[in-house]
Design a protein around this nucleic acid. Structure first.
Lengths: 126, 126
DNA sequence: GTCTGACAACTACAAATGTAGTGAGACTCC
DNA sequence: GGAGTCTCACTACATTTGTAGTTGTCAGAC
């Protein structure tokens, strides 16, 4: 049950970068986030360190002596945890109102609707 | 577009209490939250004041001189804002993966599934 | 050998959040 | 009319978050 660490908004962006491609060094992460966030390299380093402290990331020493970072928790696990928090907080834990909310408030394509309906059917039979 | 104030986790509980029934005095809110949160009355007062500052709540002086609090923003509005934040943060703004996630990870009754499918159809025709 | 430029480690600091305590005025009940 | 009781407005204080700056080291470039 490896309790999932609490990941803040900014930290989430770091995690995304590493879930997408890892391991990466601090400066690689910084470089890839710079366009979207404008963060100074040190900011990224701080966030990386905090995530290591929280055990959301692991590091490994690579031959050249610099550290590389890689996720210690799977994205799916974190998504699940965040989703639960959100669900509890905003919808009082009731998933159906949440589904209703998003089904009403977002535009979906016919294909997407088809796929969702299929999933709903599978849900029933599980 | 009445930008929605940022409401923290604890504050959200206060808002819920007032969305459910308002206006209420500080001590009424405190009393109703005590069982679930264990908060001291002053904690509730502080949170109420912060919410008034943020314009999430309004107050009105009632005859006896004590203040009562009531929401200044509709629950639906806040839910929408929180949902968007969450969607952007965790699902990169894509609603369909979110719907998939919740459709797969929650148990629904046959009725609920039926209703959701109906909504999905309406979504298509809108 | 020294200068340069990454990298790591540590420190900084304000705003937001969670969770209260204190002091002062008003009201209430003997 | 003094002693509790409510309320309110202020103040407090540790943590977490966002966003860096500073210092020291080490490896190549020259």
């Amino acid at each position: 049950m490896a309790t999932v660490p609490d990941i803040s908004d900014s930290e989430w962006l770091i995690m995304e970068a590493l879930w997408e491609s890892s391991p990466q060094t601090a400066s690689e992460v910084a470089k890839s986030l710079r366009p979207s966030t404008g963060w100074a390299e040190n900011t990224v380093r701080t966030l990386l360190s905090r995530l290591v402290e929280k055990s959301a990331l692991k590091t490994s020493q690579n031959p050249s002596g610099t550290r590389t970072f890689l996720p210690a928790v799977r994205r799916e696990t974190c998504v699940r945890a965040e989703s639960k928090t959100f669900l509890d907080r905003v919808f009082g834990g009731a998933a159906q109102p949440l589904l209703i909310h998003f089904a009403q408030n977002t535009k979906l394509t016919a294909d997407e609707v088809r796929e969702l309906k299929k999933l709903l059917d599978q849900n029933l039979n599980s």
